[in-house]
């Protein structure tokens, strides 16, 4: 029963958090660039995302005549669907999860790697050169950064000894993974940025060279769904960074000092700690976007293959060896 309540709440939370993230992005961008940002629609401009969605729905939906109509139509569904399906395995608190599957890390990686299809199909089906280039770049970039991401996750699993995210979260009660495995954490955060195609990795839709990248030929709510999916992925990736490296729903060193709390109190604390950390990382994503410029494509690929991947493999081997010999001795 609990899992269905969590399911409903988390889907509602994710969809609305995407809208909030859009608003937050524009306001924070305004603050960083010393201007106002949206402040006309409703108090403090809070209804801006709602107005944007209504506007997008009322716009004309154009499919280029030279493109593949079917692929062009299904492409925007994929990123939205994969983003929502990820919440199935994220623990929001002790016992607050949608599904307790025993290989949830594998499920997570499988769903995350499906996301690349949406972008690639969109680029291919539009039959526009800008879209094609954007789609190609997206597929190359996303599959490249999946490898360091996977290795960083594997180095986290060494501490938990389980493929279940609930165990990964529980294993960080006293020591967060960012303290035990700082390099893995940094690699994970960089890869998460690349996976969600945010600046400095937004080569996929680099306005100056590719117009809109893979969504050049998209209009109306089809474009809106790519937009929504981008912010959903920002939120999801913030949740994953929190879950894997920043102690999930635990306060710092909670195992050492936090006293036993009653059930509802613990639940409320867990959820608020988790959401606070997630919000911080959403802010961090936005902050980086308006601070750091874009890489060139060569730099992106070099960073992924010749720096992050070897580093993550070495990091994994070192942590595995240390833990193994600590546990079994040098015999």
């Amino acid at each position: 029963m609990m899992s269905y309540i969590v399911l409903g709440v988390s889907v509602a939370l994710l969809v609305s958090s995407a809208a909030i993230a859009v608003y937050a992005e524009r306001r924070i961008a305004g603050a960083i660039q010393n201007r106002y940002g949206p402040n006309r629609v409703g108090p403090l401009g809070l209804f801006q995302p709602v107005a944007d969605v209504i506007k997008l729905i009322l716009k004309e939906d154009v499919t280029p005549s030279a493109g593949y109509r079917f692929l062009h139509t299904i492409a925007p569904i994929i990123p939205v669907a994969t983003a929502i399906m990820t919440v199935a395995v994220i623990p929001f608190g002790d016992g607050l999860y949608v599904s307790d599957m025993n290989a949830s890390v594998l499920y997570l990686l499988a769903i995350a790697s499906l996301g690349v299809y949406g972008i690639t199909i969109a680029g291919w089906a539009s039959n526009s050169k800008y879209s094609l280039l954007g789609g190609l770049r997206a597929s190359a970039q996303m599959i490249s950064y999946e490898l360091p991401l996977g290795m960083a996750v594997a180095s986290c699993l060494l501490f938990a000894g389980s493929l279940n995210i609930l165990d990964v979260a529980a294993s960080q009660e006293t020591w967060w993974n960012i303290i035990r495995n700082p390099l893995g954490g940094i690699i994970f955060i960089i890869s998460a940025f690349a996976e969600s195609k945010r600046t400095p990795f937004d080569l996929v839709e680099a306005e100056q060279e590719l117009v809109g990248g893979f969504h050049t030929e998209y209009s109306s709510m089809k474009f809106g769904m790519f937009f929504l999916a981008e912010y959903m992925h920002v939120v999801i990736n913030s949740m994953l960074i929190t879950t894997f490296f920043f102690g999930s729903y635990h306060l710092p060193f909670a195992g050492a000092w936090l006293p036993e709390l009653s059930e509802p109190l613990k639940m409320a604390l867990d959820v608020s700690v988790f959401l606070a950390k997630t919000s911080f990382f959403v802010f961090f994503f936005i902050w980086v976007r308006w601070t750091i410029g874009r890489f060139t494509f060569k730099q992106v690929m070099d960073l992924g293959w010749s720096k992050l991947l070897p580093l993550s493999i070495i990091n994994f081997v070192v942590i595995a060896s240390v833990l193994y010999f600590l546990h079994n001795g040098l015999s």
Binding site: L7, T73, I77, V80, A81, M85, M101
Partner: peptide, 20 residues
């Protein structure tokens, strides 16, 4: 719940598309 979630996510996506 996972199957249900998949169904919900597809429904949300399809509703948005049909609306526009």
């Amino acid at each position: 719940p996972v199957v249900l979630l998949a169904a919900i996510s597809l429904t949300i996506a399809l509703i948005f598309m049909t609306l526009s």
